[in-house]
Each structure stands twice: as structure tokens, then as C-alpha cells.
């Protein structure tokens, strides 16, 4: 791995491509899960208030 990163002349490009993909997908998953948790909370709050 380290040998690849230091000797391959295209290593930077490959790392950049994988890094950018990880960043975008990570951001997508993060915002999706956060929005899901928020929606779940809001729905439960609303349903509880209705029961009372």
C-alpha cells in the first residue's frame, strides 16, 4: 500500500477519485440518516401529543 502510494505515478489521481467518491457518498448517507432520525422523532412527538 505504502509502496504503491509512493512509487506509482498515478497514485494521487486514484486516491483523489476514491476520496471524492467517499466524501460525496459519506455526505449523502450522513444527511439521509440525520433527516430520517429527525422525521422519526417529529412523527413520534406528533403522535404522542395526539394521544394525550
Amino acid at each position: 500500500m505504502i509502496e504503491y502510494l509512493t512509487t506509482d505515478r498515478h497514485a494521487l489521481y486514484v486516491v483523489a477519485a476514491y476520496g471524492a467518491t467517499a466524501a460525496i457518498l459519506g455526505w449523502l448517507v450522513w444527511t439521509t440518516l440525520a433527516a430520517n432520525a429527525r422525521a422519526r422523532r417529529e412523527m413520534q412527538d406528533a403522535e404522542q401529543r395526539r394521544k394525550r
Partner: peptide
Amino acid sequence: ILLVRARTEIRARRARSLRLQE
């Protein structure tokens, strides 16, 4: 991720309609 997002939208919509009823 599509399923989770769709479920989020459905929950948000349900929460919204409950708030409106309230």
C-alpha cells in the same frame, strides 16, 4: 438509501399532517 429516504419523506409527511390536524 432510496428506501430510507422514501421512508423519511413518508414520516415527514405524516408528521406534517398530524401537526395540521392539531
